[in-house]
Design a binder for these strands. Structure first.
Length: 269
DNA sequence: AAGGATGACAACCGCCTTATA
DNA sequence: CTATAAGGCGGTTGTCATCCT
């Protein structure tokens, strides 16, 4: 037999929470802490599903939540993270203290999406809409089309805080007519840090990428879309399919110390 | 003033993964 | 090992407030 059902579907209340229900839930959580959500409605005296209680607490009642609209810096961070992570709202929310995945998702759909479209940027691919239209017009063999999707560059948004609206993204190079972006022999990345790494050294010297498996770092990389296979081939990083990232840069490695890595790979400049 | 359109966001739904009997 | 519920997540809908005609 499996577990018992999360709640009795009959007699469960739906719809907006009342102040009284909020008070009961907050009192219960503050007194007993977060435990088995299934048990919460009964113990707290609520006619709600445990799932509904969890959602209400995590999205609205948690005392560490920030209220109000996302500020400009938070918005920029959301856009940057979305370019790397896509619609993985919980991962994005994990990088914004006091914000919930639901809140960020709502803000994206109601504000940021429209703002990007007004700026001529596709909110899904983060590419200029014009560039995308051109790509669709020119018919290409499937493999080439697939490559060009993976070859798109994450726009770089100016962070001078000078404007309420963002400037158009700076696309540092065209995505067409180039070898795959992760080809270490070309090292023609848009990100200066990435471009200055001697990737051939990285591939030839397995110890230079051991830093990826120290401590709990691997989990951290997952947050940025990087999922290195333990003991595998370092060239995994250059393969979008296996690494799971559209494009990577210094920020793809989070805020860890990369000095040993850059030293061992003879970083240029 | 009425009512339709739009914006904002809370809440629900359904699916997937993980945990457990 | 299997079946099934819990928990988590992303997509979608519902509701209320405000704006516009």
């Amino acid at each position: 037999m499996g577990r018992q059902p999360c709640c009795d579907k009959l007699g469960v209340k739906k719809g907006p929470w009342t102040a009284e229900e909020d008070r009961k839930l907050v009192n219960f959580i503050l007194t007993h802490g977060q435990c088995c959500w299934r048990a919460v409605p009964k113990l707290a005296g609520l006619r709600r599903c445990g799932k509904s209680c969890r959602l209400r607490w995590t999205n609205y009642l948690r005392p560490d939540l920030k209220r109000g609209l996302l500020n400009e810096a938070e918005e920029r961070l959301v856009i940057d993270l979305h370019a790397t992570l896509g619609n993985r709202w919980s991962k994005i929310a994990a990088r914004l203290p006091g914000r919930t995945d639901n809140e960020i998702k709502n803000h994206w759909n109601t504000h940021i999406k429209k703002k990007l479209i007004r700026m001529g940027i596709d909110p899904v691919t983060h590419k200029p809409l014009q560039e995308q239209a051109n790509e669709q017009v020119s018919s290409k063999p499937n493999e080439q089309a697939k490559f060009e999707v993976s070859n798109h560059k994450t726009p770089i948004y100016p962070c001078d805080g000078s404007s309420d609206n963002f400037s158009s993204p700076i696309i540092e190079s065209s995505s067409t007519g180039k070898s795959p972006p992760f080809d270490p022999n070309i090292s023609n990345f848009d990100d200066p840090w990435t471009n200055h790494i001697r990737w051939e050294t990285f591939l030839e010297n397995p110890s230079s990428w051991n830093f990826m498996f120290e401590g709990d770092r691997q989990e951290g990389y997952g947050e940025f879309g990087l999922c290195p296979p333990a003991g595998g081939d370092p060239s995994w990083l250059f393969n979008r399919e296996s690494s799971g990232v559209e494009s990577f840069s210094r920020s793809s490695f989070g805020d860890i110390d990369m000095s040993e890595f850059t030293r061992s790979t003879n970083i240029r400049s």
